[in-house]
Design a protein around this nucleic acid. Structure first.
Lengths: 116, 116
DNA sequence: TCGGAATATAACCATCTAGTTATGCAAGTA
DNA sequence: TACTTGCATAACTAGATGGTTATATTCCGA
């Protein structure tokens, strides 16, 4: 809910390893070792990434014997989608205005020194 | 186009100041001073943020006398939206898998009717 | 030609990040 | 009980990030 969350969510999504983990989790829960395998990276590194995803609320951990399987929690991701959608709407709604502006800017850009 | 871009885009979106700048730019181009004013932050700090947005391809700079007005370049943002949408689709499509059954049940405590 | 406006750049600093290796610990198994 | 598995945690490191102040650059206008 707080915009601080957006910070964490976007930051979490900014890393390719973490996006890959999310994609992997989209097809089902997975333990840490399982998640580590596809990457050329140590297990603690993956544990850290999982912690980042947890803090962002994108992932939940369960307890299954010694395993701590991670599972997707996609609802918070909606916050990111939402921001982008709203932004897109906002941006689109000012499209006409923006379009004129773009033309103006382009002329300004191309304007040569020495003329009006 | 390269996924590296996604890194930069999401990272750019992870900062509230930068999101605010983008929102501001959605309603029209703006110079650095103008962008600096609403924040309790120095002008160089804003210049840095603009550079991050530029590297992510979300912003373009023009030249107008001494000004370097920034303007939105929303197309790359579509990459982020795209990833999220695709992810959402992927995730939704695996909704009926065993692994996610618990999650599904948890999230659908309100809607019972069996839809497939 | 000089001063001021708008911005960039440099140098610096504290904090965060993403990785490493080494180690600890809880739970299942022989 | 002792070993193994699955994972977390600690301690460390290099480099990125986000801010600062001070200074340089560029262009306009008087």
């Amino acid at each position: 809910m707080p915009p601080q969350n957006l910070d964490a969510i976007f930051a979490a999504l900014a890393d390719p390893t973490r996006r890959a983990i999310l994609t992997r989790l989209a097809s089902g829960e997975a333990g840490v070792n399982e998640l580590t395998e596809p990457f050329e990276m140590s297990q603690p590194a993956i544990s850290k990434h999982l912690k980042v995803l947890e803090r962002a609320g994108l992932v939940e951990r369960a307890i299954d014997k010694q395993r701590r399987p991670a599972r997707l929690k996609a609802k918070p991701m909606a916050a990111a989608v939402n921001w982008l959608e709203e932004f897109r709407e906002f941006w689109s709604s000012s499209f006409d205005q923006l379009d004129d502006l773009l033309t103006t800017l382009k002329q300004t850009e191309l304007k040569e020194p020495g003329n009006e």
